[in-house]
């Protein structure tokens, strides 16, 4: 049976890595993915992805030669780049989980100029667009291919 909980050491490494995947930005006034609320959302959402994330974190630890969180910022950046380059599917799954949670945080959505809400029930507005563009296509004779019965 899969243990759905990461260890404290795994969580510490993951927390540091999340802040590298998406760092905070003063320019855009957004937190990083290591923000407490966002990272809690990431951990709470892992569910069936816990095992591949654990595999990715084990590889991270291997590249770091121990605790990733204990490395200097410069060394962390080097190790993270190596992980991204050779981590394969487990790292893709880890990254996906980070991004899916980051890009639903209300502060991030507002910074992107979007409303922090689910699509339903309000929906969105889509303009009709320029239907006059269809005129030359309407003028084209039928070109479907007749077939014998």
């Amino acid at each position: 049976m899969t243990d759905q909980t990461l260890t404290p050491a795994e969580i510490a490494d993951f927390h540091c890595l999340a802040g590298i995947v998406v760092p905070a930005s003063t320019r855009y006034k957004v937190p990083g993915a290591d923000d407490d609320a966002i990272f809690a959302d990431i951990l709470n959402s892992l569910e069936r992805d816990t095992d591949p994330v654990r595999v990715a974190l084990a590889l991270l630890r291997t590249h770091a030669g121990g605790s990733f969180a204990a490395l200097s910022p410069a060394r962390r950046a080097e190790v993270a780049a190596k992980l991204r380059a050779d981590g394969g599917t487990p790292v893709a799954v880890l990254t996906r989980n980070v991004l899916l949670c980051y890009y639903r945080d209300p502060r991030v959505m507002v910074s992107l100029g979007l409303e922090a809400r689910p699509p339903f029930p309000k929906g969105h507005v889509v303009d009709q667009g320029d239907w006059s563009l269809l005129d030359p296509v309407r003028a084209r004779p039928p070109f479907w291919r007749p077939a014998p019965r």
Binding site: P23, R27, A81, A92, L100, Y102, Y103
Partner: peptide, 20 residues
């Protein structure tokens, strides 16, 4: 969020500085 996942996977959006 799906756009973020796809652009990152395609190598169009980096980790770290430059992500945003």
């Amino acid at each position: 969020a799906t756009e973020a996942v796809n652009t990152e996977a395609a190598g169009l959006v980096p980790w770290g500085d430059g992500h945003h």
